[in-house]
């Protein structure tokens, strides 16, 4: 694929706006750097609009929350928000665990998998992205195209060959087939995401550092990594959540119920061939949602500060 030609040769031609910026007069005096004051009514409108949107977006989750108090037979018969015969049984059932495996074990497995995924993905993707975005080396174009190509591949196609591989390595029913690929940057999404962010960073800084004699390792570590912190945090958040929610991978590679992560455990309340406990299913998935919700609420703060902007102020 030659898509990367457009990629690697794009540049100056498409920057009329920046030209406009270049025409701008003197650098800003420090006093003008303070935040522009917003009008109060604007803030109120902003607030109201967001509240309305939030209500809309959260309604299904609120519905789900109320559904955790519905007895099993109410599913399919009562589509309203409020349970007709509220019960706490679903929670008791979920707390019992599944088939002798306590609930915390599923949480723990998910946590281990997701944490390993974050570490592996962030490190390996950042390294690969730096090479694609900031180093001019032979074969760059073709490898970049190949990386994009892997994005296009439906996952189901490689399932069987990958299974055979990990089976031959004796890694079935261990976490390795799920963790190892993360350390090899196999999720092109993250590599590409970081490439896009790195390309957005002005090149002049690392050029300057090169003149000062810095090598790629130092430029990567001392300049690029601090600059793309928001993107790295984004990667970390996504890889955590996606690993937490991954279903197909654990399904294929894990066999013992003690090794199951939450998404598989959630399905164990359902059996199409006999009966399904929808009350327990909904409750379990709601309970499973809480840790990542907390995780996100905590980590989204890091997205607040424009880290990159601060870096430029240096």
């Amino acid at each position: 694929m030659s898509t990367s030609n457009a990629y690697t040769t794009s540049g100056g031609a498409s920057t009329p706006v920046i030209a406009q910026q270049q025409a701008m007069p003197a650098p800003l005096p420090p006093t003008k750097r303070r935040k522009v004051k917003r009008k109060t009514w604007q803030t109120i409108v902003w607030f109201v609009v967001l509240i309305a949107l939030t209500a809309l977006v959260l309604y299904p989750l609120v519905w789900l929350f109320f559904a955790t108090f519905k007895p099993n037979a109410e599913f399919g018969q009562n589509t309203g928000l409020i349970p007709e015969n509220p019960t706490g049984e679903n929670y008791l059932k979920v707390l019992e665990g599944i088939a002798g495996v306590p609930m915390w074990k599923f949480y723990w497995n998910s946590l281990v998998l997701a944490t390993a995924a974050v570490v592996g993905t962030v490190i390996s993707s950042a390294l690969a992205a730096y090479a694609f975005a900031r180093i001019q080396f032979k074969g760059l174009a073709i490898l970049f195209a190949a990386m994009i190509g892997t994005l296009l591949l439906p996952f189901h196609v490689v399932i069987i060959p990958q299974y055979l591989l990990f089976n031959n390595l004796g890694m079935i029913d261990t976490f390795w087939p799920l963790i190892l690929p993360k350390f090899l940057a196999t999720e092109a999404f993250f590599v590409f995401l970081l490439v896009q962010f790195m390309r957005q960073m002005p090149r002049d800084m690392d050029e300057a550092a090169r003149i000062d004699g810095a090598g790629h390792v130092r430029i990567f570590w001392a300049i690029i990594v601090p600059l793309i912190k928001p993107a790295l945090i984004t990667c970390a958040i996504f890889s955590f959540i996606w690993a937490w929610n991954d279903f197909l991978g654990p399904l294929l590679y894990l066999t013992s119920p003690e090794n199951y992560p939450l998404p598989i455990a959630l399905r164990l309340y359902n059996d199409q061939t006999s009966s399904s406990d929808y009350g327990a299913t909904v409750t379990a998935s709601f309970v499973a949602l809480i840790p990542i919700l907390v995780f996100f609420v905590v980590f989204q703060r890091f997205l607040v500060d424009g880290v990159a902007t601060q870096g430029l102020k240096g």
Binding site: I160, Y163, N167, I172, L251, L252, T255, L268, Q272
Partner: peptide, 25 residues
């Protein structure tokens, strides 16, 4: 005896990959 269980469709999906790998329980 080590037992493993899944819902019906997942059960067969997993058996298929295991069969391909010569790895059935």
């Amino acid at each position: 005896v080590n037992s493993t269980f899944l819902g019906y469709p997942e059960f067969w999906e997993k058996r298929q990959t295991e069969a391909a790998g010569g790895n059935l329980p």
